[in-house]
Design a binder for these strands. Structure first.
Length: 907
RNA sequence: GCGUGCUUAGCUCAGCGGUAGAGCACUUCCUUCACACGGAAGGGGUCGCAGGUUCGAACCCUGCAGCGCGCACCA
């Protein structure tokens, strides 16, 4: 801290210390150090997309993980925070393909072919893949970078294949032709979780079809998708619908395509319970190829399947000459026009319905019949039972924070559906299955012999992510080897997982099942779900909206500590975060205040020196005792808040203690001693300040790692510490403990030890109020008179004088009487007079006192009424009763004193 | 439809059974030697609405309304 600048300048400080920590191996976890006295703490990072860049969501998520990790280190634990990235199949392949297309290098991925494209993606990954990990360093994340993993590392890929083969052999993975969610943009199947429902404005088309056996009789059908009419293979009615029962078993002429003779467009009228009476016209067109429910109906009634859509969502020749080749949405409009032209369209009314969208590509998915690989989830029962349910006392090994997410989890686990794990992509883990004629081989290596071809599909990205907690720790699915794996032994199961509730199903639930299946144990003990970062208007932050600030810009502008503090302050447990740059500004201001508070301390005795003296209890002033008790309280609150993952509570406490209590009152009061002439008191004051600041820096460190480290060293705190307890870095200093009973006794801190100072500060505020009410320039030194209720120590008098900015403070006894109309403020400490010697505006003073009296009377009445209620005294706990009685007395004393002043004024 | 969360000062949110709080914004004043990224003093709320439980409700219960999220969905 040489050359102490007036304002904190984070940039150089941050890079310096990060480099130091990393060079010194401070983040590196060593399983060999784990012991009974040094327990393990571990956390695996939710791996960001390898091509991603840091977002505000990452900032929130990783700051929390860093706080937990740093706190655990200060608790003396051996900490592993394991970082890495995810290959993110669709997202990454899309990014690279798009870039290549933009650069004009390809028009379609087939131009390159599988191997060349995958090579390009690897190239891309090597170039840009590390960006987000570098950005995490700028945030201060204390990850063990020596263990950085990627879901397509060779060892990791091996794990994925082994798991596939194992589950295949267990009969849990199977291949089948099913209706799946097809993404016409990415040209791949998706899992149900990758489909999001969105409201879509469109039209409900009502069109007529003629009954073959009853010419001139028509059925009206309502549909939102007329382009699929050529794929209809039946129309269905409810078997109990009296309007239509007589028609069941007859036939209709399908409305499209028109270029096919109507004799070739005859489809049956069938009865099926799926059809509801009161929706639309009660007649359903059945399109087995393009609707999940219709497909089921088709199975029940043995209907043929006509597919009129290509994989990329265009209409085929089977849709008729008028529609062939058209995009599905163009085809929709066109087919409506065709119906209208044929006189078959009754009406088209505006209609809003929910449509499934591909989460990634943001286009409507198509239900599509195709051959895919599916997984029947393993270890479902154990996984379902392991999470503590809210309100239940049943012991459970895993807890969710907030616990309401456990219900969501439970619900999903209860209705769990097989997982479509194959993707028609090139970037990812290739399915380890080979075919030769009708032979199928599943194994880790290409089977011997000629003529085998490997399945072209890759696995869903989450099929690798779900192994993350143990695959990253070197698990190889070999009993002997895994038993000898020191990392797994020490750090699995992990302690905490920090992630967003939006991936409970995608990731959290699947990790739990994989953990039980392959490690025989849960993957983590606590799951903390963050909120979602939104902008001031409550909109989710997204690239497309452009409402997401670049965290790196914020770090450059305000510092990483400021960003961390601001975000933590704004992020209460389980609530979404409405982000506003102002909160980062507040963090910046806070760091600056901390910097200057330390600068003030340094100015007393010079830089980098700690006071030699121990705190001498005999020389403690009421202010010292007050601040020690407030510190004690802050330590309790912050420790408790962190244990409950209440990060915004912790920052609130830190803010209050440091700014409102330490700076605003204690430091200001201490100036009476520091600028005074009593050397012994001064030495003791510095000792107290150093003690408080030393504890404070520790409390702040998990939140503000950079500035606290800088100050820790700059102020010389590191000098006297053993290397492993803060001598080298604040990272390993011990987390502050609340004062023990012995310490409290030693310092003379009983529960009321802070009362004098508290009353003193209250009286100062009242005195300042008097000044203002009397319109006296705050800068003007004036005289005050105090008549203490009890006794006041000389130091208390000095502090009062200092804080009131008084020229002099005269202490008088009960015999003293003030001049008529002298403004006075009263509290438990005594009466504070502002003698104005003839300058008093009697009218104004009367008005002031009258107003004050009214206010006090209201309070008196309020308490009196409560106490007057006979039921109150009878039922209320003694403590509350006493509290009310004491409060009444306080207000009444005040009332009497104000009344006396008013009387004095009138006399 | 089922589930879940929110509704407290102009804004963003704490508080979750015993005197309504913070930060920002606002008003007035202050560049006094830690900090104007600062200091002092203020103004501002019948805690969404209606019932109920209780000596006492922002807090617990019931209902209603508005907003959000998740799941399931009828063409």
């Amino acid at each position: 801290m040489s050359e102490i600048s007036k304002a904190y300048e984070p940039q150089s400080v941050e890079s310096k210390w990060y480099q130091f920590w990393e060079d010194q191996g401070c983040f590196t976890a060593d399983p060999a150090r784990v012991s009974a006295t040094r327990p393990a703490y571990s956390i695996v990072i939710p791996p960001p997309n390898v091509t991603g860049v840091l977002t505000m969501g990452h900032v929130l998520n990783n700051t929390i993980q860093d706080i937990l990790a740093r706190k655990a280190r200060m608790d003396g634990k051996e900490v592993l925070w394991l970082p890495g990235t995810d290959h993110a199949g669709i997202a990454t392949q899309n990014v690279v393909e798009k870039t290549l297309k933009k650069a004009g290098q390809i028009k379609h991925r087939d131009d390159l072919g599988r191997e060349a494209l995958v090579a390009k993606i690897w190239e891309w990954k090597e170039t840009y893949g590390g960006i987000i990990l570098k950005q995490l360093r700028a945030l201060g994340a204390s990850c063990d970078w020596t263990r950085t993993r990627f879901t397509m590392d060779p060892e990791y890929s091996r794990c994925v294949q082994k798991v596939f083969v194992d589950l295949y052999k267990k009969g849990l993975i199977y291949r089948g032709k099913r209706m799946v969610n097809w993404c016409p943009a990415s040209l791949t199947a998706l899992s149900d979780e990758e489909v999001v429902m969105k409201e879509q404005k469109g039209f409900m088309y009502h069109f007529r079809v003629e009954v073959v056996e009853l010419p001139g009789t028509f059925l009206t059908i309502a549909t939102t998708r007329p382009e699929t009419i050529p794929a209809d293979t039946a129309v269905a009615v409810n078997p109990n619908d009296p309007r239509y029962t007589h028609l069941v078993g007859k036939y209709v002429y399908r409305a499209l395509p028109l270029d096919v003779p109507k004799e070739q467009r005859i489809i049956p009228i069938i009865a099926d319970d799926h059809v509801t009476f009161d929706f639309g016209t009660g007649v359903l067109k059945v399109t087995p190829a393009h609707d999940k429910a219709d497909f089921e109906i088709g199975l029940r009634h043995n209907l043929p399947v006509i597919d009129v859509l290509t994989p990329d969502g265009k209409l085929t020749a089977e849709a008729g000459a008028d529609l062939a080749g058209l995009d599905r949405f163009v085809g929709r409009k066109r087919s409506a026009e065709l119906l209208e032209a044929a006189g078959a369209l009754d009406k088209a009314e505006p209609y809003t319905n929910n449509v499934g969208f591909s989460e990634r590509a943001d286009v409507p998915i198509e239900p599509r019949l195709s051959e895919q690989w599916f997984l029947k989830y393993p270890s479902v029962e154990a996984s379902k039972a392991c999470v503590a349910q809210p309100g239940s006392d049943a012991p459970a090994p895993m807890r969710f924070f907030p616990d309401r997410w456990a219900k969501v989890y439970d619900h999903w686990m209860g209705g769990i559906q097989d997982w479509c794990i194959s993707r028609q992509l090139w970037w990812g883990h290739r399915i380890p299955v080979w075919y030769r004629d009708s032979e199928v081989y599943c194994g880790l290596e290409t089977p011997a012999g000629d003529g085998w071809t490997q399945d072209p599909d890759v696995l869903d990205t989450w099929f690798s992510s779900w192994l993350w907690p143990f695959a990253t720790m070197g698990w190889v699915d070999d009993q002997d080897a895994d038993a000898k794996n020191a990392t797994l032994k020490a750090f699995y199961p992990t302690t905490d997982l920090v992630t967003g509730p939006d991936i409970i199903f995608f990731w959290v639930a699947r990790m739990i099942m994989a953990g039980y299946e392959y490690m025989g144990d849960l993957p983590f003990r606590n799951v903390y779900f963050t909120g979602i970062i939104r902008d001031k208007q409550g909109r989710k932050m997204s690239k497309s909206l452009g409402n997401s600030p670049d965290p790196l810009d914020l770090i450059a502008k305000y510092g990483a500590d400021a960003l961390r503090f601001g975000v933590m302050r704004a992020a209460p447990l389980g609530q979404d975060v409405l982000f506003d740059e102002q909160t980062v500004e507040l963090g910046r201001n806070f760091c600056n205040k901390l910097w200057n508070a330390c600068r003030f301390r340094q100015m007393i005795t010079g830089e980098g020196t700690q006071s030699e003296a121990e705190i001498n209890p005999a020389l403690l002033t009421s202010d010292d005792r007050w601040v020690l008790l407030r510190l004690d309280q802050a330590i309790r609150e912050v420790t408790q808040a962190l244990a409950e993952y209440k990060f915004s509570d912790a920052t609130t406490t830190l803010y209050r203690f440091f700014w409102n209590e330490y700076c605003d009152w204690y430091v200001e009061a201490s100036k009476a001693v520091i600028y005074g002439s009593d050397e012994a008191l001064k030495v003791n004051k510095v000792a107290v300040i150093d003690f408080v600041l030393g504890q404070l820096l520790r409390l702040f460190h998990p939140f503000l790692p950079f500035i606290t480290e800088e100050l820790w060293h700059g102020m010389g705190f590191a000098q006297d510490m053993p290397d492993n307890q803060g001598g080298k870095t604040l990272m390993f200093a011990l987390w502050p403990k609340p004062l023990s009973d012995d310490e409290k006794e030693y310092f003379g801190l009983d529960d009321t030890a802070d009362a004098v100072a508290q009353a003193k500060y209250d009286l100062v505020s009242l005195g300042r109020g008097l000044r203002r009410d009397c319109k006296i320039d705050p800068a003007k030194k004036i005289r005050f008179t105090v008549r203490p209720a009890g006794t006041l120590s000389p130091s208390d008098v000095e502090v009062l004088k200092m804080l009131l900015n008084a020229e002099a403070l005269e202490v008088v006894d009960a015999a003293w009487t003030s001049e008529r109309g002298t403004p006075v403020a009263v509290n438990a400490l005594g009466e504070l007079f502002l003698p104005l010697a003839g300058l008093i505006d009697l009218e104004a003073e009367r008005a002031r006192l009258t107003k004050e009296l009214e206010r006090v009377k209201i309070e008196v009445t309020k308490v009196q009424e409560k106490l007057a209620n006979p039921a109150f005294a009878a039922k209320v706990p003694v403590k509350v009763l006493e509290e009310h009685q004491a409060r009444l007395q306080e207000w009444q004393v005040k009332e009497a004193q104000i009344a006396a002043s008013l009387a004095n004024l009138a006399a």
